[in-house]
Structures are given as C-alpha cells and as structure tokens.
Design a binder for these strands. Structure first.
Length: 858
RNA sequence: GCCGGGAUGGCGGAACUGGCAGACGCAGCGGACUUAAAAUCCGCAGGGCUUAAAAGGCCCGUGGGGGUUCGAGUCCCCCUCUCGGCACCA
C-alpha cells in the first residue's frame, strides 16, 4: 500500500475533497459557460485560423432528447473541440426542425396550441443540450417554425416557381389516413407511412405542388462519384433511388385504326438487342391508349378496371412485386418496326404507368417477368440470344438451347435478321442507330426518381405563398408581401382537409394582379423543405433582408463534416443536395454539394432492440446525467463501441466510465501541487529519468499519438478512451514513486496538463475543472492540442514473441535497435527454444523486426 | 431475388498494412482499508488436460467447411445465421 493511500484514509476531510462529484463540477461550469458568450462563438472571418464546419443533423423538438441524440452530438462535439484545439475556426451550430405533425397531434390530445407545444419543447431540449455541455454557438440558433426562417422557404418557393421548377398538377398521391395528409414517395416505407409504420398508405387523386427534382437527376447521380467522404452505403442507396437506366424507346405502329389520336405505342427497353424475340406488347392498365384499343367492349372494360384496382391494392399493401401476373388480350395488334411482324397487344398488371413509357415489348425468352407471363398464357417464346460459349460461329448447325429465360449480357444474337451473330453490345449500338435513322426510335435514359410533391394538407408548416384568382388564375404572392404568416388560433382536427381552409381571414385575399378577390393556397410545405437548406442559415442566422449572404456562405461551405443517422440517406440527403444545386444556379452559393464528408452513426439499442416507448427500454439522458454526470454519459456513448456501429446501452458501462473519470480526478487533485512547484517547464530530460518515470513519459507520448491518430483517421473513439484509461492506470502504478519524491516535478506537471488536454474533447466539464485546479487560465478550446514526440514514444526494449513452427513457445527481451543477426542468435540460444528444437533441423528462421521470430524446424 | 454490414470470453468490445487473440470496460473471484458497509486501492481471470498444490508444460479456441502461407480473427473459395437497404424499374 502506498503512503498516499494511508494518509488519505486517515484524514477524513481530505477524503471528502477527493471524491469526484460531477454534479458539483458540472453545475459550476454550466453556469459559467452560460454567462460566457464568447466561449463558443466562431468568428466568421478569422484569417489566422482555418475554417472548419462541423454539423450534426438538427433534431425535431419532440419533447426530450433521447440517447440517439446524445450519441450523435457527443461525436460532433468531440470533433468540434478537437478542431478548435487544432487551431481551426469552428462553426458548430444547432437548431430545430420545428414544423411537423406531432405538434398538431399534441394540440388535439392536450389542447395546447402547436406553437406553444413546440417552443416549450425547444426550450427544454436546449436546456438539456446545455446541461450536456455541447459546445454549440447558440447565437446562430435556427428554429424553422418562426417567420424569420419560414419566410425564406416561401421566398425560395417563389424563385422555384419563377424558374419553372415548382408546378401544380393533379396526380395520384400517397395518402396517410393517420396523418390526414399526402406523403412524398420518399416518405412511404413498405407501403406504409414513415411515421406510422402500421398504417397503410392509400392512393388519392389530388392537386399538388411539385418541385422538379428530376431536372437534376443526372447531376445528383454524377455528383455521388465525387462524394468520396460519404459512406459507400449512402451513395449506393442514392444511386438506386435515382435509378438511372439507359436504353431506347421504340415505336410500334398499331395495326388498324384506333379511337382518338396516336396510332402507335412507344415502349422503353434496355434490351433492344432482343427485339426480334418480342412476341407481344404489354401495356399498363392505366395507359392512355388502352381506352382507344378496347373500344366499347364492356367485358374488356371491366377486365381492365380489375387490373387497375389490383395494382392500386398491391401498391397500398406495399407488396407490388408479390402479386400474381396476369392480363388481358385487347384483341388488337402492333407492328414490330424491325421485322414488320404483327404481335398481339395485351394489358397486364405487372406494367407500371409511372415508369418508362408505361408500355413494354415482351420478350419471354430473355426476361423473367415476360417469361412467367408468356408461360401462363401460352404466348410464343422465341430465342434470339445465345450464351457465347454455346453460340460461337453458327456453322455447325443448330446449337443447343440455353436455360430459359436467358438474361445474361455475355451473349450473341441469332434469328435477328441482319443483326444476327453480333455481340449483345454491338447489337444494342447498331440497332439503336438503325431505329434512329429510320425515325421509329431513339436513345432514351429513364430515371426512377420522381418530382418531389411538397403539398401537405396540414396546419403546422410553411404556408405555400400562392393565390387563386377567379380572373387571373394561379398567382404568386409578391415578394414584398412575404412572409405569408401562419395564423394562430386554428381549430385543429384530422378531418376535412387543410385546417387553414377553415379560417376565412386566411383564405380570403386580394389578387395582387387585378385587385379582385382571391383564395389563398391552404396547403403547407413538406417539412423536408425546412431541412433542405437550414445549414446555410446558420452562417448568418439573423440576416433580415436575404436568406443568406453569399460571401459568408462561401467562406464556410461546403460543410467539412456532417454527422447524422443513416435513416436520412435518401430523404433529407437527396432533398438538400437538390436544394444546393438550385441555390447555386440562382447564384446564391458557389458550392455544388452541401457536405464534403458525411458520417452516419449507428443506432442506440438496449437489450437487443431499438429503444422505444412501446418496448419499455428507453433510457433517459436526464437520468444518466443525474446519476453519473454529463461527462460520463457522453464519454460512455463514445467508449462503448466505435461510432459507426450499433451501440448496446449498458448502464453498468456508464458507471465504469464514471469510475474512470473519478480516478483521473483524484490523481490530479492529489498531484496538482507539482504544477505549481515546477515553474511551468514542460518535460524533463528523458536520459535522467528512472525506468519507471521513463515508462510514464513513454506512455504519455504513446497515448497522445493514439488519440490524435483516432481523430485524424478512423474515429474509433472507443480505443481513444481506452488508451487514456490505460495511461491513468499506468500513473496509478507510479504512485509510490511520486509519493517518495522520486518523480521529477516537471514531468509530473507536464503529464497532468497533457492528460487534461486529452480529456477535453470527451469530458469537457471535468477537463475545465482540472485545468483550473492546475492553475491554468483561459478556455481549453483555444489551447493547442498536445503534441507528441515520436522518439519519446519509442520503446527501448522489445519483447520478441518466439514461435516454433508457428506456435508460441517463448519470449526473448532485446534492445530495440538489435540487428536481425543478433535477434536470430539470441533467440536460438534461448533455453526453451533449444529444448523445443532439440534433435530437429532448423529449416528457416523468420524475423519480423520489432515483433516476432518464427523458427521453422523439420 | 439483388446490394451492403455483422458473427471474437459470462457481457460491451480490442487486435491499424497477415505476426504473441481477448487491450479497455462491465459483471465475477480474492486481498487491503473499515466495528461494519459503501467508496477507494491492489491482484486474479478464454476453455480443457497434467499436478497434492503452485510453478511449469501440453492441447483446443475468433459462426461452419476447405484452401493459400513459415504464420490466418485478418487473404481466397463454399456454406449457415443475423441486421439494414432496395425490389414486377422493362
């Protein structure tokens, strides 16, 4: 037992002093930071510091923070603090995604106005964040439900409208009965609402406002290749969502007259090389040409209607792929322009109106779906493609048939007129050119991405700034009349369409063009509009006459590091990329992409399941802070696993981190005196140190090296924290050395200062407290990150692991600089090694410098 | 069906370009301190066999099976389970 321990336990008051009490420390600093407005402020144009913009996705103010938030912000805050300490001018803001349906639900349930409910949640959650000690620049706070923010949503909408990028159309839309509103395609998950996972989405026909995201399809796709700092997973998800498909559209003339216009059916195909194998045309049930084709036949009419209904039902069930394929023959024929062949025209339930042209050429031999359909109805299956290995030159008579359907592209054409014997690639080229030259087809690129429907039949959102005048039609609200204020005192129910429509003072307006009476648009915008550009507003949150200042934005953008959940991979992260491109085209910003690097942290789970109220496994951050303190709560969320992985919350683990912080605290409290006696000289001369002290010094430099590398590279903060723990353990091992005065004061002072600096990004409260204990002044955020000396981090002795035939048999300790020959000699001289190779022949000795020796014997 | 993660002690997880598997933490066990407890401090600890016991020694061990290599948790091939995402996209 050490002297210090003896003294400590004998002396009661001192013991109390050495107790780590996070509540006392954290409340003290919490109060100081609240008053210290300069502490976190980022100066916009500090030429001496390099800018760094670190951003966490802004939360919805649902009422209280959950552990997922804490984890997300703990990662961002550690990085922000690290970047400050590395000399950067850091922008680290926070805000509130404050519009949305839960506020309306709360209004109905508790009879509280949405504004009040939302703003009180904001106040509570802001207080929680401050208590957790996140270093946000609160002077830039953005709350999207306030007019000084949503005014600019309306302003952007007018710009989009001006440029033809916002338009109104009647269309089939996804309707969530629970939300009583329309949802965008991105917000439908497995046929259900993204908010109500149990509620099936219905299809309704409504007049809606759309934004032309598809104008940027190609750029949104191409840009992904350059986003190397984004997770491959997210890039893949976006690529699939955009769904670019290269092919050709080909016109098939309809044989004989049809009712109305047309006379042809245009199909889209990616496999024009198989067109000689087309044995029917398949139309989507809602294809406009169908009505003309089937004429007045009541039987066919009802059949087609059945197909329409079936598709709608399947879409609502979210299981479009699972329904059994079937269809109906229209009795009509179309002509294949390549061989003038007459083929039957069918209507089928597996053809979607909203993809491609809503019509396909059916090639049963070379498409799985067409094959299934043709088998069922006995349609002709004609092979026009052979695998290359079977194919070859066709000189040796008829080759064997491939297994059908044969869909591979490594192939060769047969039975295709002048195109026979071409490779699949050549055929696609030549046949497309042939179609273009003869005017019945062209190269076509199709995307799965649709325009973004933003109308919502809800109250708590940004009013769409449009008017409907009896004389002038659709009229935009003039810019000078913005914002169109969202009225208070609205009776909210989930029935009867937009709540705003029931407020005459809101609805009735004057047409700005003719002065006559007009009706206001009563739908509000999708809340994803709010989050599509909020991070630009942070750069100048109070700007009154413009949404943003281009010069300021150009300084800060693109965001250096964006951090959030992967669940936004295709919603928010596509919308905000679209918005950035639109803003760039307006000349407002100069960057093409909002964020250079994206990090998606893993979920927080407990007992193997996602934390949720229904499962009763929710852990409240407030409880954790009350029990163990903010530092322990935050640090545990970084220590439990690496940030990209799922985190299994274990309360005992938080306690463990709390114990560790207590150890660090007590060490500094006991030894801070050394700092005051050392005259502030950093470091001691290594050569004069005792082995134990040299070991501490070495460990110090190794620890700084490891933590620094983790920040710069993989972000495995769990190993950073483990390294700091190891270091503190090492310090405890030297307590006798210290208490007997064998530990140089300079080194002891240096060790403590650097330990506190290492803790600063992870446990900011404790770091601030100990920094003060050590007699230092000024914010840790402005203090340089500790450097390490690679030479001092080097080991001077190395324990070589010795293997015989790959099995560990011994250890040999040698000086670090030992040449290979010496290592070999000493290893072979080792007693255990000699015993193990006794009587056998040494075939080979492999020396891995600094690590291991493997002796191969026979 | 397609794409992408993951599987390591009782638990969370380490092991960076192939080189001592299990760092660090939790739970556990033992000890010190205490009238006692808490707190704290120190130590032990993958499984098995050998041994009176300990030291020591040996064998097995990173989801399963094969392979490459002096050497594989790590690389290659096949398979199982699991978690995400997409899915009649022509």
């Amino acid at each position: 037992m050490s002297e210090t321990t003896k003294n400590m336990t004998a002396n009661q008051p001192e013991q109390r002093e050495l107790r780590y009490e996070p509540q006392r420390i954290e409340e003290k600093w919490h109060a100081r930071w609240e008053a210290d407005s300069t502490l976190y402020a980022a100066e916009p144009h500090d030429s001496k510091r390099k800018k760094y913009y670190v951003l966490e996705m802004l939360p919805y103010p649902s009422g209280a923070l959950h552990m997922g938030h804490v984890r997300n912000y703990a990662i961002g805050d550690a990085l922000a603090r690290f970047m400050w300490m590395n000399g950067c001018n850091v922008l680290h803001p926070m805000g509130w995604d404050a519009f949305g349906l839960p506020a309306e639900n709360a209004a109905i349930k508790n009879n509280v106005p949405p504004r009040q409910w939302t703003l009180s949640n904001v106040a509570h959650m802001r207080a929680q964040m401050k208590r957790l000690g996140f270093a946000y620049d609160w002077s830039r706070e953005v709350t999207t439900c306030l007019p000084d923010y949503y005014k600019w949503n309306q302003w952007f909408f007018l710009k989009l409208y001006e440029k033809g990028l916002a338009y109104r159309k009647k269309s089939k839309v996804n309707w969530c009965p629970e939300c009583a509103t329309v949802l965008a395609n991105e917000q439908v998950v497995d046929g259900c609402c993204w908010r109500h996972e149990e509620t099936q989405v219905e299809q309704r026909e409504l007049e809606q406002w759309f934004l032309r995201t598809t104008n940027y399809s190609e750029e949104l796709l191409a840009g992904l290749d350059k986003l190397e700092g984004w997770p491959e997973k997210v890039r893949t998800m976006q690529r699939n969502w955009i769904g670019r498909s290269e092919g050709a559209s080909v016109d098939f003339k309809i044989d004989g007259p049809i009712g109305g216009a047309g006379g042809k059916i245009t199909v889209f195909t990616t496999r024009i090389d198989t067109i000689f194998g087309a044995t029917s045309i398949q139309l989507a049930p809602e294809h406009p040409v169908v009505a003309g084709l089937i004429g007045n036949d009541p039987h066919l009419h009802s059949k087609v209607e059945d197909l329409v209904r079936e598709q709608a039902r399947a879409r609502e069930a979210g299981d479009v792929g699972a329904i059994e394929k079937h269809g109906v023959f229209t009795g009509r024929y179309a002509i294949n322009p390549f061989n003038q062949e007459k083929i039957p025209v069918w209507v089928a339930n597996y053809i979607l109106m909203d993809y491609g042209t809503g019509a396909i050429m059916s090639v049963p031999a070379h498409d799985e779906r067409d094959y299934e359909f043709a088998e069922k109805y006995g349609l002709e299956i004609r092979i026009v493609i052979l695998p290359r290995r079977i194919g070859g030159p066709l000189a040796h008579g008829q080759p064997e048939s491939p297994v059908l359907p044969y869909t591979e592209k490594e192939s060769l054409l047969i039975n295709s007129g002048e195109f026979s014997e071409l490779s699949n690639q050549e055929a696609i080229e030549k046949m497309t050119a042939f179609a273009e030259k003869n005017g019945f087809g062209k190269r076509t690129v199709t995307y799965r991405l649709k325009d973004w429907g933003i109308s919502r039949q809800r109250y708590w959102g940004t009013p769409i700034p449009m008017l409907y005048c009896e004389k002038c039609g659709v009229v935009a609200v003039p810019e000078k009349d913005l914002p169109v204020l969202l009225p208070d005192n609205v009776d909210i129910t989930l029935q009867g369409g937009s709540p705003l429509g029931r407020i005459p003072e809101f609805v009735n307006a004057t047409c700005p063009r003719c002065g006559g009476s007009a009706r206001r648009e009563t739908d509000t915008m999708d809340t994803f509009v709010d989050s599509a550009w909020y991070f630009y507003r942070y750069t100048n949150a109070q700007l009154a006459d413009r949404p943003l200042d281009t010069a300021t934005v150009s300084y800060w953008f693109p965001i250096d590091q964006y951090i959030g959940g992967v669940e936004h991979a295709i919603l928010h992260l596509i919308y905000s990329r679209f918005w950035t491109k639109f803003m760039r085209d307006l000349g407002l910003v100069r960057n093409d992409e909002p964020a250079l690097r994206l990090f998606t942290q893993g979920m927080v789970i407990k007992d193997g399941a996602k934390m949720s109220k229904s499962k009763g496994n929710v852990v409240s951050p407030d409880d954790m802070v009350a029990q163990f303190g903010a530092d322990s709560t935050r640090m545990y969320s970084l220590f439990a696993t690496s940030p990209d992985r799922e985190l299994d919350w274990q309360e005992a683990g938080v306690e463990g981190v709390h114990r560790f912080l207590g150890r660090a605290y007590r060490f500094v409290m006991r030894n801070a005196g050394a700092v005051h006696g050392s005259q502030g000289r950093d470091g001691a001369r290594s050569a004069e140190l005792s082995p134990k002290c040299r070991q501490i010094e070495r460990k110090l430099h190794q620890t700084i090296k490891r933590v620094t590398k983790d920040f710069q590279g993989r972000w495995h903060f769990n190993t950073s924290v483990a390294a700091i723990m190891e270091f503190v353990n090492e310090l405890y091992g030297a307590e006798d050395e210290i208490s007997f005065g064998r530990f140089p004061q300079e080194l002891l002072a240096d060790v403590q200062r650097r330990l506190v600096l290492l803790l600063a990004p992870f446990a900011p409260y404790l770091a601030a407290e100990l920094w003060e204990v050590l007699g230092a002044t000024g914010s840790l955020l402005r203090h340089p990150w500790p450097a390490f000396d690679p030479a001092l981090a080097e080991e001077d002795q190395i324990t070589y692991a010795v293997q015989i035939n790959g099995k560990l048999r011994s250890h040999v300790v040698l000086p670090a600089e030992s040449p290979e020959d010496l290592v070999r000699e000493r290893v072979l001289a080792d007693e255990k090694v000699r015993a193990a190779i006794d009587g056998k022949q040494v075939a080979k000795v492999i020396v891995v410098p600094g690590k291991l020796v493997n002796v191969v014997v026979r």
